[in-house]
Design a protein around this nucleic acid. Structure first.
Lengths: 377, 377
DNA sequence: GTCAATAGTTTATATTATGAACTATGTTGA
DNA sequence: TCAACATAGTTCATAATATAAACTATTGAC
């Protein structure tokens, strides 16, 4: 259908925003003739549209933009219960969403998801959905169809992608939660033009993913970005045992679960909002717990920055954590342990943890295929 | 001269070893006709050669190999004094070498290097040198020609590559020491077919570089792999100040310099061989110093493995360190802090620290251009 | 109103890969 | 020994894709 050239145009416009044919030719190192011809095809297919001309000296240039309504995608997040299903356009904007109970049983799970997808597709009338993406907390095989292991759902070697694909008739991609998040950020987010950035999210667990050289850093065994079990507490007298078998892992101190546990051990409420309120009121024990957690997170972040050198680190977390001592400790500890760089201001970007983020990231998995093509990154 | 296709063939053969035209076509996803034609050109240019046919059922296949003598390269290491200049072939084999005093003065430095290069070229008779690579301890600009900063030589914004290139008439590439090392390993070494591996070297300082998705991980500001200032000693009572301004950096405990300093503070000899001998004789202080150093190195390595997930980590160090408690502590501490993976045996590969390694890596910078072409990675 | 400047198109052509038929060179087994 | 088969590699007509250079289009500026 489309050639590599078409996808080059499409991905450049998606990444760098609207540009004229001449600018595209310059950026992509192609001839104006080639761009002209490729753009013609994409306009005819109504995937691109021409924006109002920009006047300078000489003939005005016509910025070309990717049409948001050119394609629609379904994104599913099994990150939490309830599961979330969203319908997005080609810009990543959510047009409709549903929440449904998350079932561990494969058959029930697929059935309820398919019902939701059917319902969302109906709302679209004539327009077509191009693909489905799913994010889940666990390991996913290289084929991006099979879930190798998911503790939360008790899955092992579950071909959830294949089953979904067969039932919906739509191409389907599966991805680990953190990976889906960062891929969504890369395709739709503010950092989309940066080839080197990282995303960390802090919820009950801690997730992390990295874009490096413009591509997702997966690593040899798909385990890259696993900061959650970074050995942070090295003082073995205080290191708590972790479910991974080691002691002192980051997630034993810095995750919501760990903070809640620490609070309850100290006789404080395990609710994060409550604890943050206490800390804001200068409650010494609450302050200590949150400071230790945030500083540990900061130490791990410093390791990440030193090793991977991203332009930005997006940290998604509960606003209660962000605005209090946890966020401050995180930022201070990170900055005090990295080598000063020319630009380190605003390197850490806090962002609210929103439940739809994972579903949006999931939808982006399918959108990537549309934008980058079959050989795309 | 050559097209993308030619470079595809050349880099595949270089990376995956000799293969027949049919195998190449399969691996590269090209038609047999295309491969046949491209190979014909490369044979005519005497860059490839045909090996003895392999018999199976049907017509024997003819493995094609990159001819070592097809191109020659100069590699320069300014890592230590004396500087080292090597002449390598297209397989990375050193055919000749020279050592010369390392001059900080640009003019003197370039002059003596040019003399050495001229001498090495003479030994080649008719054959031509295709390019020059240089490795130095410091920061190098994106153009791979300019040294931005080099503490050892006191250089700032020195266009050493441009000057060398002008004087020798040869294309020249400059690279940071660790980067040159891993790029050499990727082109010529045993791990050349792995797209995800890391190299660490431990000398007076500590260097680290990573290949990720088949490409060098440079990071946003070119600072990726900077493990030398990883915050390892978090117990501030014992954290030593580092030249970077922070305290407790890895290099304040695990480098040769740090070990020597610690030994001298304890009234022991600062020589690494001496110290290792003492430790082998169960000298408690020597053991303690080396164990602490090795374990710290292991902790940092564990962070690296968790975040980047390489298939292998090559650790280059003094044999005295490798065989004693330092090496053991490094390995044990690393393995105890990483999540178990299906294949973790032999993940850490110790290798002797050889002075020519950097110069070979430097030569590989020029060889890359020959093998991967102008658009190559 | 002409000219300079830049955007975009047309068209003939060059480059590069492909598919399918063909040749080459062996092994296998009656 | 020789036909049958299997696989490797080549040839050649063709398709796909990009290019260069000349062209048209559309404006601002003087």
């Amino acid at each position: 259908m489309f050639s590599t050239g078409h996808y080059l145009i499409l991905s450049s416009l998606s990444r760098n925003g609207p540009e004229s044919r001449s600018e595209l030719a310059l950026r992509l190192g192609m001839s104006k003739a080639a761009v002209s011809s490729l753009v013609r095809d994409l306009l005819k297919q109504e995937i691109l549209c021409e924006q109002t001309p920009v006047h300078g000296s000489g003939r005005p240039s016509v910025p070309l933009a990717v049409r948001a309504e050119a394609a629609w995608f379904i994104g599913i997040s099994l990150q939490d219960d309830p599961a979330i299903v969203v319908l997005t356009d080609l810009h990543g904007t959510v047009h409709d969403r549903m929440e449904l109970p998350r079932h561990a049983d494969l058959e029930t799970c697929v059935s309820s998801l398919c019902d939701a997808i059917t319902h969302l597709r109906k709302g679209l009338r004539s327009a077509k959905v191009s693909g489905v993406g799913m994010a889940l907390p666990g390991f996913v095989a290289n084929d991006r169809q099979t879930c190798l292991a998911c503790a939360a759902l008790g899955w092992r070697d579950v071909d959830i992608g294949g089953v979904l694909s067969k039932r919906t008739g739509l191409p389907t991609w599966i991805e680990n939660d953190a990976n889906a998040l960062i891929l969504g950020e890369q395709l739709f987010g503010a950092l989309r033009s940066s080839p080197d950035f990282s995303v960390i999210f802090i919820s009950n667990g801690i997730g992390c993913a990295n874009i490096v050289n413009g591509r997702l850093l997966r690593g040899y065994a798909g385990g890259a970005g696993e900061m959650s079990h970074a050995p942070i507490v090295t003082d073995m007298a205080h290191a708590l045992p972790c479910r991974c078998g080691n002691r002192g892992c980051l997630e034993t101190v810095a995750s919501l679960l760990a903070i809640g546990n620490a609070a309850r051990r100290a006789g404080l409420p395990g609710e994060i909002a409550e604890l943050a309120r206490l800390a804001a009121g200068a409650h010494p024990e609450a302050l200590s717990i949150l400071h230790h957690a945030g500083a540990s997170m900061g130490l791990a972040t410093a390791h990440l920055i030193q090793l991977i050198d991203p332009s930005h680190v997006v940290v998604m977390l509960d606003p209660n954590l962000r605005d209090g001592i946890y966020g401050h400790a995180l930022q201070r500890e990170t900055e005090s342990h990295i080598l000063r760089r020319p630009v380190s201001r605003g390197m850490i970007q806090f962002r609210d943890f929103e439940p739809d983020s994972f579903a949006c990231g999931a939808a982006s998995l399918a959108a990537r295929y549309f934008i980058f093509g079959p050989d795309g990154v």
